[in-house]
Simulated scan of single mutants.
Amino acid sequence: MKKWQKILIALLGIVLLFLTAGILFLQLHPTFGGSPTNEQKELYRQFDNYVDGDFVNMNEAELDMDMDFSTIFSLLRDAISGVDDQHPLEAIPIATFDWETIKNEEDSLTWFGHSNFLLSIDNKKILLDPMFGNIASPVSFIGSTRFSDDILDVMEELPPIDAVFITHDHYDHLDYPSILALKDKVEHFFVPHGIDAHLLRWGVASERITPMNWWDELEWKGLTIASVPAHHYSGRGLFDRNSRLWSGWVILGEETRVFTSGDSGYAPHFKKIGEVYGPFDLTLIEGGQYDERWSDNHMFPEESVQAHLDVNGETMMLMHWGAFSLAYHGWSEPVERALLEAEAQDVNIIAPEIGETVLLEELPVPVSSWWEY
């Protein structure tokens, strides 16, 4: 055998080894979660939003995420070069947590950055998309790191949590380390269909998980809870895209009506949600990590304000910014654009600091422009 043939065989062997290791990592590491069972898939086949083995968005067979060569090239270019102000120059400040207010019976909202909130409503403590980890990635050495200092220890100070609501299974919303740290403090998890497979693999008991489809509604501890459509997609690995559902959530208490959009492109479902469940005292609307190249599944801030109007909201807060850089725009650009559009549309908007607690009876509260620190 010639020397070049031996080298080629050795190189092929190395490639095969890395491929095998990668596949085993995807299959065996728990951070990738679990897969829906055949019994679950049989249930999904009865849903209008499940087509040919995948969940789909409203009124379409498949989310268009195909990219041509020029788009892929532009993404690679931006990934290498970045953009101005994509990350803050230093760690952004975190407000001093007011644990006394957080733990009392008043309706309140505390933001932990991105789409992670602690909502207190009717003295029920609710976490939305609890992502307390430092990196939005399945591995520690690749991915966007948090803008602020470490907030993992915040979970130790949280009061007992009545419920966790998950919107979808992307790493910046469903964080494996956070769920492990929280699961013994949480009474119940409400999730889109298929997300329960992740939680079950991570040790959450099935009786503490309620999977829901769009427009499913139930009463729980005096609250009305409904899963509502979002225009997005799901997946944590290379081969599981859209095998699990994504959603927004409606949470209605005695005095306060809240809507959270989850990740979503702007689409007609917002008006339908407003017709069925509006008005809302507070809306938490996705409006960061946007780009023309994926405008189907993330809103520009101006669209976020329109979505708030569509669902018939009184006061809105922009979310999906302030913690991670997942798109090629300035890190504080989303809230600055949203504030301008809110003023133009005469919309009440709040923008609390990370860690700040807002009493919902006092909405709207003044905007401090804290990101200009």
Rank of each mutant, 00 (worst) to 15 (best):
Tyr373Thr: 05
Leu180Pro: 00
Phe117Ala: 00
Arg337Met: 08
Ala21Pro: 01
Phe259Tyr: 08
Phe190Glu: 01
Arg146Leu: 07
Val228Phe: 12
Ile354Glu: 12
Thr145Ala: 11
Pro366Glu: 01
Ser206Gln: 14
Ile9Lys: 15
Ala163Leu: 03
Gly222Ala: 05
Ile166Glu: 11
Leu8Ile: 07
Ala351Met: 03
Leu12Asp: 03
Thr71Lys: 14
Gly262Pro: 02
Asp107Cys: 03
Glu275Asn: 12
Phe69Thr: 15
Asp169Ser: 09
His114Tyr: 15
Leu17Lys: 04
Leu284Asn: 09
Asn38Glu: 15
Asn57Ser: 01
Ser247Gln: 14
Lys272Phe: 04
Pro30Ala: 08
Leu11Lys: 05
Ile161Trp: 11
Val311Leu: 12
Trp371Phe: 00
Gly313His: 01
Pro366Thr: 03
Leu360Asp: 03
Ile251Ser: 11
Ser325Lys: 04
Trp220Met: 03
Asp54Thr: 08
Ile23Thr: 10
Leu363Lys: 01
Asn49Leu: 01
Thr210Tyr: 02
Asn134Lys: 12
Phe270Trp: 11
Thr167Cys: 15
Leu89Gly: 00
His232Asp: 00
Asp129Gly: 00
Ala342Phe: 00
Val358His: 09
Arg146Ser: 15
Asp84Met: 06
Ala307His: 07
Leu19Lys: 10
Met67Val: 07
Trp4Ala: 02
Gly34Val: 07
Ser368Val: 06
Thr260Pro: 00
Pro88Cys: 07
Val367Tyr: 07
Lys183His: 04
Leu8Gln: 09
Ile102Met: 06
Lys3Pro: 01
Gln289Met: 05
Glu353Lys: 15
Gly287Met: 04
Ile23Glu: 13
Asn123Gly: 07
Leu284Phe: 14
Ser332Lys: 12
Arg244Leu: 02
Phe97Tyr: 07
His173Lys: 10
Arg77Tyr: 01
Ala10Pro: 09
Met212Asn: 08
Ser70Thr: 08
Arg257Tyr: 11
Ile126Asn: 13
Trp215Ile: 02
Ser81Cys: 05
Lys271Ala: 10
Met131Ala: 15
Lys271Met: 04
Glu219Val: 06
His198Ala: 01
Lys125Ser: 13
Arg208Glu: 09
Gly82Gln: 07
Arg244Trp: 08
Thr37Phe: 01
Met155Gly: 02
Trp294Cys: 11
Ser247Thr: 14
His188Leu: 13
Leu12Thr: 04
Pro229Gln: 01
His329Asp: 09
Ala205Val: 14
Gly34Arg: 12
Pro268Glu: 09
Glu343Gly: 04
Asp172Val: 00
Glu60Leu: 00
Gly13Arg: 03
Thr210Asn: 11
Ser148Gln: 06
Ser234His: 14
Ala95Asp: 14
Ile349Val: 02
Asn297Ser: 11
Thr145Asn: 11
Val311Met: 07
Thr210Glu: 13
Leu238Asn: 10
Thr256Leu: 03
Trp370Thr: 07
Ala351Cys: 12
Ala91Leu: 06
His329Phe: 05
Leu340Arg: 14
Leu43Val: 04
Lys103Asp: 13
Ile195Met: 02
Gln27Trp: 14
His320Met: 08
Ile135Glu: 06
Phe32Tyr: 15
